[in-house]
Simulated scan of single mutants.
Amino acid sequence: MAGRVAMAILLVASGATAAAAAGGAERRAEVVNTQVQRKIDVSTQFAKVVTTYTVKGTSGSYKFALPADAQDHLAFMSVTMDKAELEFELDAPSPGRDSAGEGLMLYSAAVELPQNKEEVKIAVGAVVRVKAVYTDVLTAFPKEITQLEEQSVVFASTLLAPSPYKTVKQTTTLKLASPKILSMTEAPNKRSVKSDQVTYGPFEDVPPFANGGELRIHYVNHAAFAKATSCLREIEVSNWGNIAVEEHYDLVHAGAKMKGGFSRMDYMAKKHAELPNPSFRKLDAYLPAGASDIYYRDNIGNISTSTVRHNLGGVELSLLSRFPMYGGWKNAWYQGYNLPTEVRE
Rank of each mutant, 00 (worst) to 15 (best):
4 R>N: 08
4 R>G: 01
6 A>I: 04
9 I>T: 09
10 L>N: 03
13 A>Q: 09
19 A>T: 07
22 A>P: 01
24 G>R: 13
24 G>N: 12
26 E>L: 15
28 R>E: 06
29 A>G: 08
31 V>K: 02
32 V>I: 12
34 T>K: 15
36 V>I: 15
40 I>A: 05
43 S>K: 04
46 F>W: 10
48 K>D: 09
54 T>M: 09
54 T>V: 11
60 G>H: 10
63 K>E: 09
63 K>Q: 12
64 F>L: 01
70 A>C: 00
80 T>V: 11
82 D>I: 02
91 D>N: 14
95 P>N: 04
96 G>R: 06
97 R>P: 00
100 A>G: 00
100 A>K: 13
101 G>V: 04
101 G>E: 03
101 G>M: 04
104 L>Q: 10
106 L>F: 03
111 V>G: 06
118 E>K: 15
123 A>G: 14
126 A>K: 15
126 A>E: 04
128 V>W: 11
130 V>H: 10
130 V>L: 06
134 Y>F: 14
135 T>N: 13
141 F>E: 06
145 I>A: 08
148 L>C: 00
149 E>R: 05
149 E>W: 01
150 E>W: 08
156 A>C: 05
158 T>R: 14
161 A>L: 01
162 P>L: 13
163 S>T: 11
171 T>L: 02
172 T>E: 05
174 L>I: 10
175 K>H: 04
176 L>F: 07
176 L>K: 05
185 T>D: 00
187 A>C: 03
194 K>E: 12
198 V>L: 03
202 P>L: 00
211 N>E: 13
214 E>I: 08
220 V>E: 12
221 N>E: 06
223 A>C: 04
226 A>R: 14
227 K>C: 02
229 T>L: 13
229 T>F: 02
231 C>S: 10
237 V>I: 13
240 W>P: 00
243 I>M: 05
244 A>C: 00
250 D>C: 01
252 V>F: 01
253 H>D: 09
254 A>Q: 08
259 K>Q: 13
260 G>A: 03
260 G>D: 04
268 M>S: 09
268 M>D: 07
269 A>Y: 07
271 K>S: 10
275 L>F: 10
276 P>K: 08
283 L>P: 00
284 D>I: 12
287 L>G: 02
288 P>W: 11
291 A>T: 06
294 I>D: 05
294 I>R: 07
295 Y>V: 03
297 R>W: 15
298 D>S: 03
298 D>F: 10
300 I>L: 12
301 G>E: 09
302 N>M: 11
304 S>N: 05
312 L>N: 08
316 E>Y: 04
316 E>C: 01
317 L>V: 01
323 F>V: 05
326 Y>S: 06
327 G>K: 12
327 G>E: 06
334 Y>A: 02
338 N>L: 13
339 L>A: 07
339 L>V: 07
341 T>W: 00
343 V>E: 11
